[in-house]
Every structure is written in structure tokens, then in C-alpha cells.
Write a protein that binds this DNA or RNA. Structure first.
Length: 878
RNA sequence: GGGGUGUUAGCUCAGCUGGUUCAGAGCACCUGCCUUACAAGCAGGGGGUCACUGGUUCGAAUCCAGUACGCCCCA
């Protein structure tokens, strides 16, 4: 038989994925006989392509869902995408531009037609990519946040909350792109470091006594053209320079309009001149200051960045032209004290490059305070657990200072806000235009109103306003609140997502859960870190520092990539991605593959007796010991630790130790009992490996034996925690230490591995080596083992567990070097003994420390004493 | 500015309830091996003042306070 020495993932991954799909292993339907285990995917952006963050996130989800499936739960992982209004709309606009079409030339309906066309063509690529990763989602349940039912839920929720008084209209400062004539989200604004100018302007102080000499207050600003929108000048009440001006007014330069001097500690005394012009319509901080002091708001800008009538001066000019002109005029009027250069951050539009204007506009808001309360409690009381828990603090501080949620977006791609304006400017809210008309007639008392009299709001809802309903709406919990899916699967179990959206998304899902189903949406939230490059930078397209995940899968295999990602990804910590990790994952695949090859290659001789009882008992115990640990890691969402435990179990215990113990000599057959047991061990190992490395393990599972039609590893039963012989494991540890010591002697004395040595044991500790002799001989390549009463002359010796071991060297021994080595070890051990003695003679230690600790110290003391005695014997024998 | 969080081997990180899982893993490094499962491997080895300073304690990488530096979130 010839099996490649290298595991070749390419040949088998697609085969098994298809096979799983065909047999419906990913599919889930409510089964009252089984415990449900549900995960809803954090819906990726429908326009997105798989990046490293998705890989990490979805690998973790797949590990969880595969393990649950094997545990016999009804595992359901619901996939889908969200419509990502801003990102998608930007892509559609870009596509149209390539075709020479301007969005502004299209009607809303025309644009949406293009958008859907685009979505059908390019959308959801990411879901296909997830399949390459091995994601075992129930694809029949794939949802999209803008599909009909999901959208209906969104509209229904909007209307419901509006009726409850939870949704209102209000003014908000937005990032305005005057070129694109649209509001932008913070994510679409690119800050650029630039040198800006700070203009120091003279505001004349209004004095009762007009005859006196004019006095001025100097105000620094980077945007002098906005002075026409000024409504006050603010100074810090503690700023002694301005104490004499408290309660006075000033005149806006050029305009001559009087505005008050107001006092507020917000003003930084040491920045600029310590006097701040207050322009609520064009600066967020000024807006808040204005609100606080109940000041007027004067908006002097048009949509396109030109000045409007309110400005009185420079009307119709672009803001930058106006700035040039006003600077010139101020200079001429002698009101410009000086111009300073300073480093500043300019906000620019990602899409048009235009300088962003902070601008006030009317938006829709969702109140948060009431809904935040139960959502905060649920997390604080651990009804919903965050992993790692350190995020509780962050969550709390956010939820305790929660701001109302701005839910409208000036876009077309998304659910259109179901608010309808009447000719008189008032509005009604209803799920359909017809219902709105009915309502409008009733509320206005005007029965003559027609559909054509109503004008629907132009804006759409924030995408998060769809996705906060996700865990409910994927099971049609709005359309049909008592359907059997939602009753069975909801609340879901675990959510895996990034801490960046803990507030945007997770918190709001919790709110929605309580608001609409009176129940939390999930029990555990596993927060992954951010995948960064080796220099700690975020991965981004601009930097080009992100590898293409599909290339990695192609190169290293999906299993290798999955394992590699998880090797270094403790929950909540960023992962510095290094291809070396993936390489390690691939190497691990290969290691398992070769263990399989070894076992598969053995011929069985039925007449042989089993010589490996100890090894078999030991590995059985060792497996169970490791498995307990693995389960413990899983229960605490330490996925990375769980994998590492599996890794060590497979590589160190199974391959390096167990297989070496039982391996027959070259071309010798193996006995029936050993091979059968070993195959069952490998099967158990494959099971715990499967969630991490599904393809490779399924392949070996089938190569190992002929399987029945539905006898797949993906649905094989997860091992159960069993008792194990701790004593045997400890004994074997000691034996393996002896083996290690022999190997060390070989290495340091340059003795080839294939040269067999003899070993004499002077056992005084009472340890039983008898049943391990075969193992010692095999692993350390020992020809003859003997037990002796006295130390051996002319031998290299070492001490392990209080017993002395001798390797006869036929006189070829460097006595001086040996003496030195032993002397050194003796001194170290004596020093160790002193420290232990010190502890034990400390009365406060003996009386204060728990019994177990003291017993341990006593044992340490005894061991050290035995070792010292043994070394002294060896020294004497030299 | 407010809050959070971190600093452990050359690098990336574990270390959970203070004490034998206590100083650990992987990578990198050094030495020797193509020993018929695996060089994507095997055997062995070196490497740390647990950021710093105090405190609590019989005992601190671990708990507390302060300092320095880093990162994250909010403004």
C-alpha cells in the first residue's frame, strides 16, 4: 500500500464538504427529543469578501457547532448576510459611475433596481468562501437582512416603537459631504493631518459708555467664514483675563451684530486666546454649548457648501472662496490680529475627498434609556456571560451613559422609513402607505386626503436597525411569533463576534430580545480579538498587509489554517497573525496523517500475544486526563487552550510516546489486541480533533475502516468524561524521565541512537519498574536492564525520582568531567534542600499554610535528601 | 480629559482560586541525526530580576497602591 508521506488537503476537502451537504448533516429541524444548540452568524456585509477576521470568527463558531453536534445536540448554525447600506450603496454608485451613470440622474426606484441587480450578481460571495473554510452552517436557512420578511419585521418594529413613544425626530450634527450632498457615517470620514491656519479676530466689546476708547477681545478660529453664524463668545469663568467682561456683549466683526459673552468651564484657558466663538450650527461642541446656554442656531450653509441668505455677507459664494474674501476684508478693517499656522486634522470624505462640514440635520432617533436597563442587568448578573469577562466593565460604562440611537441614514439602499408627511408638514407612521392614509385622514380630520398628498420620508434605516433583530427575525419571530422554530431555537446559545461591535450590535440585540420577546437572545458572547499583522497593525486593503484567506487555504489546507488561527487566539486578545502559525497548523495536519499511515501500514499476526498492556492502560488514562482538561477549557470558552491540549495529546502523548511504545520492530507484524485498541484510540483522538480540523479527520475516519452509510465522524459521538488512573500516569512520567535522561546521556556523549546501551537500576525508592522495562528498553534503546544493589564503577550515572541509574561505559569515561557534573548537581540539590528546610522550620508557615502544601514541602524535602544521598553514592563510586 | 486594559524567554502569548501544572508553550536559536510513519520530521540543549517602586502575607508573576510605557473605547 502506498499512501503519500505528505497530507494533501486539496484532494479531499471539497469531497467531504459535498458529502456532508449531500447527507444533510448541517441541516437542523426542531427535535423535542434533543437539546437545541443554536448559533446565529454575525451577518457579514453582503458585499464583503472573506478576510482574516471572518476566518477567525467563523472558525470558532464552527468549532462550537461541530462539538455540539457530536455531543448529540440539535445543532443549528444560521448563516446570512446584512445589506450594509452604506458600503453597498457606495459600491453600486461606483458601478454606475463606471457605466457612466450618475446616481443623481436616477430615481429611487431605478437606483434600487441596479442595487438589487448588483446584490444578486456579487452579493454573498462571502458565504461561498465560508464553505471552503468548512463552515457547517444550515445553508437552507440562509437569510438576508433586506429580504421581504426581514424588512417587514424592521418596519413593524419601527412602527411599534414609534407608537410606544420610543422613536422621535430630532436635530443632529452629521458629517456632511457638500460635494456628494449626503451625510456620512463616522467610518466614511478620513482624517488627514494638515497644516491649518488659525485666524485671530478682534471682536469689539460693547460698552455702555460709547464715548470711551474701543476695546476688543481676540478670538481664534480656523474657519473665519463662519463668524456670521456666531451666537456668542465663550470664556472660562476662571480666566482672570476676562473677568471684567463678564455679562458684556461683543460685536461680530464686519457684521456688527451683538452677541453675548457667556461663561463656561468647557473653554480651555490655554488654547488659542482662551476666548471661543460659539457657532452651534457648524460645530458639534458649539452645538452642545449652545443647547446648554439656550442659544439660537444659525445655519449659514447650503447643501453644496455655499453660503446662504442667513450669512448676509458673501451669499452664494463657496465656503473656501468666502474664507479668502472675509480674511481680506477683515484685514482691511483692521480686525485681523494675526494668522498662526498649526497642525490640525482635516476631516475629508472617503468618497469625494471633499472637506467635511459638520452640519445640523433632522434625523430619526430611538430612545435607549428604558431598553438599556434590562440589557445592562442581564450582563451584570451574568445571565448573559461575556467571554472574557473583562468586557463587562466596558459594557457597563457604555450602557450607563447610553445615548439615543440615530437610526436614519440619507441613503436609498435599506428599509425606507415608514413615516409619511402630510401637506401641512405633520407626519404619520404606519407600515404601509394605505394605512398611513387612513391614519392621516383620521388625525387631520381631512377625509379628502389622497395617497398622492402623502410624501414618504426619503431616508432609510440604519443597518443595525435590521441586525439588532437578527436572532429573532432569522426564525421569523416577528412574522409568526409562535412558530415552532423560534420556540425551539430561541434563545440561542452562543454568539461569537468582535468587541468593536459590542455596543452597536450585541447590546442592541439584547435590548431587542427583551423588548420583543421578553427574553435574552443568547447566553454567551465570545469576543474575539482583531487580527493584526506581525507589526501589530490592523489588516487593511490600503496597507496590503492582509493575506488572502483563500490563498492560505489553497496553500496550507483549511484544517491547517483553522488550527493555525486558533493557536494564538485567546478570547478577546488581538492576534498578531504570522504565516508561521498556519505553517504549524499544516505541520500538525501532517503529523496526524503520518500517525494514521503508520497504523494503517501494520500487518496483523493473530497468533501474537499482546505485549503492550501497560502502554495501552497508560494512554487510556492519559487520554481521559487530557479530555477532562479539554472539556474544562471548552466550558470556559478557552478555545485556544482546548486546541493546545488536543495538540499536545496527539503529538506528544499519542505519537511520540504511545505509538513508539507499541510500534513493532521494522517489518514485524503486530498483535490483534494492540492494533484494535490503537485504532480505537485513534478514533477517539480524531473525535476531539474533528471540531478543529474537520476535513483531515473525516478523511482518516473513512480510510481507517469501512463505514456504514451514515457513519460519519461529523456525527460520531463525542467522548464522555471517564475515570483515569492518576497513579499510572505519574509512574509513566517518571519512566519517561528516565528515558529522557538516557537520551540526554546519548546526546552529550555523542552516542548514536542506534547503538544499544545497557542500564542498571539501583532502586531504593520503592518504585516499581518491572512493568515498564519493555517501554524503557524500546524508547531508550536499551539492550539489557539489570537491578543492582551497589553503585556501578565506570558508568555514567544519573538520579531520577530518588533512584540511581547507571549506564556502563566500558571504561570510556571522563572521570573528572563526570565528577564535576555530579558535584554541580549535588550543590544545586543541597541549595534546594536548604530553601525547603527554611520554609519548614518557619513556624508561621507550618501553622498558617494548608495541610496539603506542607505535605508537599515535606515530600520535596524527602526527595531532595534521597537525591543527595544517591549523588553522593555515585560520586564515591567514580 | 474620563473609563477600560495590558507590560512574563529574541518574537507571539499561556499561567484560571496566592503555595508542584510555577516560572510554561509555540516559533526562532544551538548540537546531533535522511534511525523505513512523519526533515512539514526525530533526539537533546541554552535562554527569564515575571516593566519599575512600595505594601499586604508565613509565602506574590498572581492581591493592593503608585510610577513609566503601550493599546482600546468614549469625549
Amino acid at each position: 500500500m502506498s499512501i503519500s508521506t505528505k497530507y494533501n488537503p486539496k484532494e479531499i476537502e471539497q469531497k467531504w464538504y459535498d458529502s456532508w451537504m449531500q447527507r444533510g448533516f448541517f441541516r437542523s429541524t426542531p427535535n423535542p427529543k434533543k437539546e437545541p444548540y443554536t448559533i446565529v452568524i454575525p451577518p457579514p456585509n453582503v458585499t464583503g469578501v472573506l478576510h482574516m477576521g471572518h476566518m477567525l470568527n467563523n472558525t470558532i463558531q464552527d468549532v462550537l457547532i461541530r462539538r455540539a453536534r457530536m455531543q448529540g445536540k440539535e445543532a443549528c448554525w444560521v448563516p446570512g448576510t446584512d445589506h450594509a447600506s452604506i458600503a453597498t450603496e457606495a459600491k453600486v454608485v461606483a458601478m454606475l459611475k463606471e457605466r457612466g451613470i450618475n446616481k443623481s440622474d436616477l430615481t429611487r426606484e431605478e437606483f434600487l433596481k441596479y442595487a438589487w441587480e448588483w446584490k444578486e450578481k456579487y452579493g454573498g460571495i462571502i458565504l461561498e468562501q465560508l464553505k471552503k473554510l468548512g463552515a457547517s452552517c444550515d445553508w437552507d436557512r440562509t437569510r438576508f437582512t433586506m429580504e421581504e420578511d426581514m424588512s417587514a419585521a424592521v418596519i413593524e418594529v419601527f412602527v411599534d416603537l414609534y407608537r410606544k413613544g420610543q422613536i422621535y425626530r430630532g436635530v443632529r450634527m452629521v458629517n456632511w459631504d457638500p460635494q456628494g450632498r449626503t451625510a456620512l457615517s463616522d467610518e466614511e470620514v478620513i482624517p488627514k493631518d494638515t497644516m491649518a491656519k488659525m485666524y485671530h479676530l478682534q471682536y469689539e466689546v460693547v460698552l455702555e459708555d460709547a464715548s470711551g476708547e474701543k476695546t476688543y477681545i481676540t478670538v481664534a478660529t480656523s474657519r473665519p467664514e463662519t463668524i456670521m453664524a456666531d451666537v456668542a463668545v465663550a470664556v472660562n469663568p476662571n480666566d482672570e483675563r476676562y473677568t471684567h467682561l463678564h455679562g458684556k456683549s461683543v460685536r461680530i466683526p464686519l457684521l456688527g451684530k451683538e452677541v453675548p459673552i457667556i461663561l463656561d468651564e468647557y473653554v480651555a484657558i490655554d488654547f488659542g486666546t482662551g476666548a471661543l466663538k460659539v457657532t452651534p450650527a457648524h460645530d458639534l461642541n458649539d452645538y452642545e454649548l449652545g443647547q446648554k446656554h439656550k442659544l439660537q442656531v444659525i445655519d449659514i450653509l447650503n447643501d453644496d457648501g455655499t453660503l446662504n441668505e442667513m450669512a448676509q455677507l458673501y451669499v452664494g459664494q463657496d465656503r473656501f472662496a468666502a474664507r479668502r474674501n472675509i480674511v481680506k476684508d477683515l484685514q482691511e478693517a483692521g480686525l485681523l490680529a494675526k494668522i498662526e499656522e498649526y497642525k490640525s486634522v482635516l476631516q475629508t470624505s472617503e468618497r469625494t475627498g471633499a472637506v467635511i462640514e459638520p452640519r445640523l440635520s433632522m434625523q430619526w432617533w430611538c430612545k435607549m434609556d428604558k431598553m438599556a436597563k434590562p440589557a445592562l442587568e442581564a450582563v451584570m448578573e451574568d445571565n448573559i456571560k461575556l467571554h472574557p469577562p473583562k468586557f463587562k466593565n466596558m459594557y457597563r460604562s457604555w450602557m450607563e451613559n447610553v445615548h439615543d440611537w440615530c437610526i436614519s441614514r440619507q441613503l436609498w439602499w435599506g428599509q425606507r422609513i415608514p413615516a409619511f408627511y402630510l401637506p401641512d408638514g405633520s407626519h404619520v407612521v404606519a407600515t404601509t402607505a394605505e394605512k398611513a392614509l387612513e391614519l392621516a385622514r383620521k388625525e387631520s380630520g381631512n377625509e379628502q386626503l389622497q395617497l398622492s398628498d402623502l410624501r414618504q420620508d426619503e431616508d432609510v434605516l440604519d443597518t443595525w436597525f435590521s441586525s439588532w433583530l437578527w436572532p429573532i427575525s432569522v426564525f421569523d419571530g416577528f412574522k409568526d411569533p409562535d412558530n415552532k422554530d423560534i420556540l425551539y431555537y430561541y434563545p440561542t446559545n452562543d454568539l461569537v463576534t468582535a468587541p468593536e461591535i459590542l455596543f452597536f450590535w450585541v447590546a442592541r440585540m439584547i435590548m431587542a430580545g427583551f423588548e420583543f420577546r421578553n427574553e435574552l437572545p443568547f447566553r454567551n458572547v465570545y469576543l474575539t480579538g482583531i487580527v493584526r499583522d506581525t507589526q501589530g497593525r490592523k489588516m487593511s486593503k490600503q496597507l496590503g498587509n492582509s493575506p488572502d484567506p483563500l490563498d492560505l487555504i489553497e496553500q496550507y489546507g483549511a484544517d491547517g489554517v483553522r488550527a493555525g488561527m486558533l493557536f494564538s487566539s485567546p478570547a478577546g486578545n488581538d492576534l498578531l497573525f504570522d504565516e508561521k502559525l498556519i505553517e504549524q497548523g499544516r505541520n500538525f495536519s501532517n503529523k496526524i496523517w503520518n500517525a494514521f499511515r503508520l497504523i494503517k501500514g501494520w500487518e496483523v499476526d493473530e497468533s501474537l500475544l499482546c505485549p503492550n498492556e501497560t502502554a495501552i492502560k497508560w494512554f487510556e488514562s492519559r487520554f481521559n486526563e487530557a479530555f477532562v482538561q479539554i472539556e474544562d477549557h471548552f466550558s470556559k470558552f478557552r478555545i485556544s487552550d482546548a486546541l493546545l491540549s488536543v495538540y499536545k495529546l496527539v503529538w506528544d502523548d499519542f505519537c511520540s510516546n504511545y505509538l513508539e511504545m507499541i510500534k513493532p520492530a521494522y517489518q514485524q507484524p503486530i498483535d490483534r489486541q494492540t492494533i484494535d485498541t490503537t485504532v480505537s484510540f485513534l478514533e477517539k483522538v480524531l473525535k476531539v480533533l474533528h471540531p478543529f480540523m474537520p476535513f483531515l479527520t473525516e478523511e482518516i475516519w473513512h480510510d481507517l475502516k469501512q463505514r456504514k452509510e451514515k457513519e460519519y465522524l461529523i456525527v460520531a459521538s463525542w467522548p464522555k468524561v471517564e475515570q483515569f488512573d492518576k497513579g499510572l500516569i505519574e509512574k509513566m512520567d517518571r519512566v519517561l524521565n528516565v528515558v529522557g535522561a538516557v537520551r540526554n546521556v546519548r546526546n552529550s556523549k555523542n552516542i548514536a541512537n542506534n547503538k544499544a546501551l545497557d542500564l542498571a537500576i539501583k532502586a531504593t525508592s520503592g518504585a516499581d519498574y518491572e512493568q515498564f522495562l519493555g517501554i524503557i528498553r524500546k524508547l531508550a534503546n536499551i539492550e539489557e536492564v539489570s537491578f543492582v544493589e551497589d553503585s556501578l564503577d565506570g558508568a555514567i550515572s544519573f538520579v531520577e525520582g530518588g533512584d540511581e541509574f547507571f549506564i556502563p561505559m566500558e571504561g570510556n569515561i571522563d572521570v573528572a568531567a563526570e565528577r564535576e557534573r555530579l558535584q554541580k548537581e549535588l550543590e544545586y540539590t543541597k541549595g534546594f534542600l536548604v530553601s525547603v528546610d527554611k520554609k519548614l522550620s518557619n513556624e508561621r508557615f507550618v501553622s498558617g499554610a494548608p495541610e496539603a502544601v506542607i505535605t508537599n514541602e515535606r515530600k520535596k524535602k524527602a526527595d531532595a535528601e534521597a537525591k543527595i544521598h544517591a549523588i553522593e553514592q555515585s560520586l564515591a563510586a567514580l
